[in-house]
Write a protein that binds this DNA or RNA. Sequence first.
DNA 1: GGTAGAAAGTTTAAAAGTCAACTACCTGCT
DNA 2: AGCAGGTAGTTGACTTTTAAACTTTCTACC
Lengths: 167, 167
Amino acid sequence: MTGRWLTESQQRAWRVYLQGTTLLTDTLDRDLREKHGLSLPEYEILVRLSESGDHALRMAELADSVKNSRSRITHTVKRLESAGFVVRRSCPSDGRGVIAVLTDNGFAKLVAAAPDHVESVRTALIDGVAEEDIAAVGRVFSTVAERLGTDATVGVMCSDGGRDQVD
Amino acid sequence: MTGRWLTESQQRAWRVYLQGTTLLTDTLDRDLREKHGLSLPEYEILVRLSESGDHALRMAELADSVKNSRSRITHTVKRLESAGFVVRRSCPSDGRGVIAVLTDNGFAKLVAAAPDHVESVRTALIDGVAEEDIAAVGRVFSTVAERLGTDATVGVMCSDGGRDQVD
DNA sequence: GGTAGAAAGTTTAAAAGTCAACTACCTGCT
DNA sequence: AGCAGGTAGTTGACTTTTAAACTTTCTACC
């Protein structure tokens, strides 16, 4: 049975969510740019790289982890590379592959930016909101991500096991 | 006491929210474009106009209601105007003001697109999610919007009361 | 071992968004 | 009246994002 409308309260939640996310991402992006010269998407990429054992990930892994298109990752990584925060290496185990590696400068930039960013997230979103409501947001968007996400995240990437021929 | 980190579960919620919103807005935008040739921001503007008594709003009201910059509203409305969905009128009660008016074509386009869009929202976000969790999302983003929003939404706009000199 | 088809990334051009400067108008004060 | 300062909206230059075409490499099968 399709063609259903939203209930009054679903409608309200949906509207305020649209407004809220817009304001939230704008705020986080602006804070990050002003204090650290990074955009939010750039910051997210640095985070993912830093969390990978050897500070390196393949382009496709990066794309999957932040849910961006490969094309977009190419562009963003190019910017990060020209800023000196990331370097590209070719993947030893797959001639088509490219590995983005966090530089020391990139890591330092991230370390400098993270506390301010977390503070922004707290004051804009988390502080003063019921812990259980945050958890509910987690549940909801987890479902969304499962439904809409490319169920990828598999593959024998060479970022962690490929440290055998970095020459 | 600043400089606090996020708890494990806050962190998880935040991450999955980032991924989820990205996937969600991408999906809704793509659906709308494929079936109806409208972007999500364009659609939102048509909605706001349609909900205003006389199918007309001032640019600043529009900007506030969707939390976009005025510049962005100018650009988006320009596109909608050249598509024939909206018309600009100057505001009789304020020489600086501009009123965006929904055309019949614009309204028809919205009427055609709305059911598909709502269906997308349901299947991507709402269906199968606990009603109480949707309500929690509403509470959370309502707080966010209150905190970050320009506390505007005042002003003696002429969109509803200005129907005295539409000549 | 050669070849068809898929996967990884990049490229290019066009579309969309941002930012700061600018015009025009309104408001209040003297 | 006149002028200072603020508000509404637009503009144009620049940046970011998107979409589609393209190159290269890999995989599987004959």
